[in-house]
Simulated scan of single mutants.
Amino acid sequence: MSAPRAKGYNSRSQGIQSHVLPHAGALTERATRYFGIDLARLPQMSDRELAQFADRATAMTRLKEILPILEKHFTTLIEGQVEYEQFTQRVLKQVEKGSKQIDKSLLDAWLLSKGYDKHLQSMNQRAGHGIQKLETEHRSEQDLNRLDFQAAIKMIHLRHQNRAKAIGEKVPQAKRQMQVQETLRRQGETRKELLTYGTAGKPGKGLWQGVKSFFGG
């Protein structure tokens, strides 16, 4: 009994051909799709086409040499990004809590200032009534002393108003100053890291050129 004849075999065909490939099914197509290797065309390829396999193999060899380094760097980048996002979340939670406390303090201060303003307004009205009363009476020495006292009360009222306004303005200014200081601190840390480690990395990065050529091709 004779051996099975290769599928698609033609005894009159010319050139080099494989008797295995016709029985390989989808594997032949996968070799081309996944690895860029067309086994059926190999015998008909020119020297220049065959040389492209050598170029790809050289680039792949160079890539394999740095894969452990890349894996370490990529792991650091991924883990660092996760830790950074978790850090950001923790900071935002603190910002929320701190902001609520500051907002409450600002509201309390505003309510206190409104209550004090009402108190000063009452004093001012009393002082105004006293002045009107003095204007309708005889200007005795005692009346003049009382008038000076009421004028002093009004001056104190104005001073307290200005002081309360200044305090209300200092609270948001202090908050902005803290934010500016924090921004400057972060910029300083970033600059220190940049000057310490640089951006070019360690020597030997010429290997990247082969990787670039491989992926670019």
Rank of each mutant, 00 (worst) to 15 (best):
P4Y: 03
S11Y: 01
R12E: 09
S18G: 01
H19M: 08
V20H: 05
L21Y: 00
A24V: 00
L27W: 02
L27V: 02
E29F: 02
L42I: 15
S46Q: 01
D47V: 15
E49H: 02
F53L: 07
A57N: 10
A57F: 10
A57G: 04
A59W: 11
E65W: 00
P68Y: 14
F74Y: 10
T76N: 15
L77Q: 10
G80S: 05
V82T: 13
F87I: 04
V91A: 05
K97F: 06
L106R: 06
A109L: 09
L111M: 10
K118E: 07
Q121P: 01
H129N: 11
I131P: 00
K133H: 10
E135C: 04
E137N: 07
E141I: 03
N145Q: 14
A152N: 10
A152Q: 11
M155D: 15
M155I: 12
M155Q: 14
Q161R: 13
R163E: 13
R163T: 15
K165C: 09
A166N: 06
V171G: 04
A174K: 15
R176I: 13
Q177C: 06
M178S: 14
M178V: 12
V180P: 04
T183P: 04
E189A: 12
R191G: 03
L194S: 03
T196R: 09
Y197M: 02
G198C: 02
P203R: 01
G204E: 02
L207G: 05
Q209W: 09
F215P: 02
G216N: 08
G216E: 11
